[in-house]
Design a protein around this nucleic acid. Structure first.
Lengths: 187, 187
DNA sequence: TATAACATACCAGTTGGACGGTTTCGTCAA
DNA sequence: TTGACGAAACCGTCCAACTGGTATGTTATA
């Protein structure tokens, strides 16, 4: 037929877009809505094109998850570089990365959906497990106090709450919460 | 044909079992594995029977979620009754309910998968949202300190970690963490 | 011109769910 | 006590839409 418009070739861009669409679908309509047809449809890329970049659905999900982990790492490292105090630095970085989630610009917001994919697909849990273990070993010297652990757990809780839209807290209360958490990392 | 053995009628039991199977499937194989066929197959109930109890898949998921919320409420209330100190009582109850998750006997363990279903299916988020709001209004007098909020968030984090199997922490560390959290509710 | 980046067509299996059947059970008249 | 009867519980089948994936193109770009 070749009625089709053959797009300009831009593999990296297309690949990126496919991941974003998958994340958006997951966040807006749930995991069951993330199908190859839906992703290819919503991104304007043919199913063949999609399967060219990601040979299987599993590979798509894993790639999505990995890209989200990379963003998390980047966010943490950025926060850590701006932090002069070694003690509790990783925990504060982790906290900031979790907090930043809410203020993410539209379009990039979907990266929160790590959790979603994570929880839903057991195959990805070990990836997360590995990530946690690596970090906790790396920062055992500066971030192994009880209070630091609490802060990181609370950060997870905030992350979850922002993700779910629960805990509608006003700004001043949130700020007070954050201040207290940071204080706890310094004890 | 009627080759089929027609089971004794026990609607409540069957209904309960269907929910348990759905929860187990979700936890073991992910949300995408929760299909009507799979649930009916694994529970020994025909698809027709399944759809008799739950007129649609959505209704099945909602019923599952509601039953899990009920268990959460029950666990919290039980813990609260055993707690003499009013201040921070709800927060400690919530904490205990989240902690108890890990020590659940096999078979009942699946109820942790609230999160899973929750996160995956956006339709259920508002249910959770409503639950949170109700509680936070009800216990505004005794559980509205910053530290209490932190403890509840950390409880969510623990819940999540137990659910995912991350944070492999030894018993004494865990106990120390819990003690500190309880202390925070009393400030 | 070779290769990567796409598109189109097609397939076998699965999906949610509609449907009509059969069996059990509570109830209430006789 | 019985038995008729209607409703509820449950079964098995069928189907259209959709699923993940293959196979085979066509086009752009190095």
């Amino acid at each position: 037929m070749s009625t089709a418009h053959h797009r300009k070739k831009q593999p990296l861009f297309v690949r990126q877009q496919l991941l974003e669409v998958a994340a958006r679908l997951a966040s807006e309509k749930g995991m069951t809505a993330v199908t190859l047809d839906a992703v290819s449809g919503a991104s304007g890329v043919s199913k063949g094109g999609l399967l060219h970049h990601f040979p299987s659905k599993n590979m798509l999900l894993e790639a999505l998850f990995d890209s989200l982990l990379e963003r998390l790492d980047a966010a943490i490292e950025k926060a850590m570089r701006a932090d002069p105090l070694p003690h509790g630095r990783f925990t504060r970085g982790y906290l900031h990365a979790c907090l930043a989630l809410r203020d993410q610009p539209e379009g990039t917001k979907d990266w929160a959906q790590v959790t979603m994919v994570l929880l839903t697909e057991p195959q990805l849990r070990q990836r997360w497990h590995a990530w946690v273990r690596e970090r906790s070993e790396e920062y055992i010297g500066t971030d192994s106090s009880v209070d630091a652990a609490i802060v990181r757990l609370a950060a997870d809780g905030i992350w979850l709450a922002d993700l779910l839209g629960s805990h509608d807290m006003d700004e001043s209360a949130r700020q007070k919460l954050i201040n207290r958490l940071i204080e706890l990392t310094q004890l």
